[in-house]
Amino acid sequence: MRFLLSLCLATSALAAPEEKNVLALPTQWNTEAGKRTTLEAWKGRHYALTFVYTSCAGSCPLTTKKLKRLDAALEKAGKPLDLVIVSLDPSHDTPEQVKQYRARYGVEDAKRWNVLVGDDAQVRTLTMLLEFKYTKNPESGVILHDNTVFLVGPDGSVQTSMSSLDQPMEAFIDAVPASPARGQKRPSR
């Protein structure tokens, strides 16, 4: 019993309260419909957040395919979530590019998908809040980046995260509350 208590204490010490919070600093984004928005629009609800860029030939296709699987699995589990996908390459990712990106992955009409495009300073702020690393080659435009999908909670804090490449998504899905509050207003996009 004492051992179990110690184990619990040790575990809770390891799992220190999550300090990452996407609302700790304001960030401004454009929706695909060309409206200005902030992540405050998702306040009060859980959502999945990650970063890609539409011309990425490296890991982004794998990330996007995993998001599709995650989207389907969450729906199957009765826990549908909005997916917020932030562009790492705002100067290139025009609304037309985003449209083509959606078409390429067959998610033209996926209502829960939200692709946000801001500017480099907004991307830097949000990625730093999440400690999501990326770097852009100034000449080739190639972006090296992390491959993390975050589960963001109602207060903007990160609840859990997973690799969008090779990590199973069961733990991520388990971390999503079973019965999300009803009647929440869906952000317009």
Binding site: S59, K133, T135, H145, N147, L165
Partner: peptide
């Protein structure tokens, strides 16, 4: 900069 232990796994 991506000097991490993960580098050999992460092809990107």
């Amino acid at each position: 900069l991506f000097v991490t232990g993960d580098n050999r796994q992460d092809g990107d």
